[in-house]
């Protein structure tokens, strides 16, 4: 009886604990590796699983606009610890790329992880594919990106990535690059939380692409860049106000780049609304 009475509040307490607490403290990977004896892979997998479950629960909360800030540094720590235990664990690299890069923009950290992984997973084209995208899209280092894409193309045995890379490896091709990247991944993704995040992002980029196409048409017709989104709608280059799935509002920079107040992250739009530029 007492057990039942205690159980409900206890589980509520555990659920409401701050997230970093739930992700837990992870000992030094070297120590962990030493004591895990021959179970290093299993421990590594368990660490990745822990982060994934944490993230799975988190995505819903974030999408429901709850205020808890995700503990990205802790997630990174656990993931990088996991690959120390098992440098072959693809889930770890994949997760780092899928979440850390987009949501925290720790592109350098992600690239370090990917480079580390490439030393071990020498057959895997996904890793250079990710690294290529990171370099091109986020860092705008097209030379390095091309190298990674070539390597991905060679490993995958198809020229698809090489040719894609050639087509999009330039400033104006970023949106196309992102769309190719995301639709490649969304097809093979089976983790619900991550696929959802891909789908939302893909949707946002498709909207951005529509706006960019409208902008380009406007420029051809008028010989100048449009100054606002509203101008595009008024001139009937866009049929309606484009919707940001992240809840932000689209705008155009003076250089004509498409921006959104959400910055492609859930929850940020709210703050911006409260404190407009």
């Amino acid at each position: 009886m007492a057990f039942v009475l205690v159980m409900a509040p206890l589980s509520r307490h555990l659920h409401d604990r701050p997230l970093f607490e739930r992700l837990g403290h992870v000992p030094q990977p070297e120590v962990l590796k030493a004591v895990s004896a021959d179970q290093a892979q299993a421990v590594g997998a368990a660490m990745v699983m822990k982060v994934m479950i944490y993230f799975g629960g988190l995505s819903d909360e974030t999408m429901n606009r709850q205020k808890t800030p995700p503990d990205y540094p802790a997630m990174y720590r656990v993931i990088s610890g996991a690959v120390k235990l098992d440098p072959y664990n693809m889930d770890a690299y994949y997760f780092a790329q899928a979440v850390l890069v987009w949501d925290v923009r720790k592109v350098d950290l992600a690239n370090d992880l990917l480079d580390y992984g490439m030393k071990y997973r020498t057959w895997d084209w996904y890793l250079p594919f990710f690294a290529g995208f990171n370099n091109a899209y986020f860092l705008k280092d097209y030379v390095k990106a091309a190298e990674y894409y070539r390597s991905a193309g060679e490993l995958s045995g198809s020229n698809l990535y090489k040719s894609l890379a050639g087509r999009y490896l330039q400033e104006s091709g970023r949106t196309g690059l992102a769309i190719v990247y995301l639709s490649t991944l969304v097809k093979s993704e089976k983790n619900e939380a991550i696929r959802k995040s891909y789908e939302v992002r893909l949707k946002a980029y498709r909207v951005v692409q529509i706006i960019e196409q409208a902008r380009d048409l406007f420029q051809v017709n008028h010989g100048r860049l449009p100054s606002t989104i509203d101008e595009l709608i008024q001139e009937r280059f866009l049929s309606a106000v484009p919707v940001d799935p992240y809840g932000g509002r689209f705008s155009l920079s003076p250089k004509g780049e498409v921006r959104t107040s959400s910055n492609f992250v859930f929850g940020r739009a709210k703050n911006d609304e409260r404190k407009p530029e």
Partner: peptide, 21 residues
């Protein structure tokens, strides 16, 4: 099957772990 990218690898890891344990 909770794994994102390496279901078979994870099943092998778990199986070997169990046997070893």
């Amino acid at each position: 099957s909770l794994s994102m990218r390496q279901v078979t690898e994870l099943s092998l890891t778990l199986s070997l772990s169990l046997v070893s344990f």
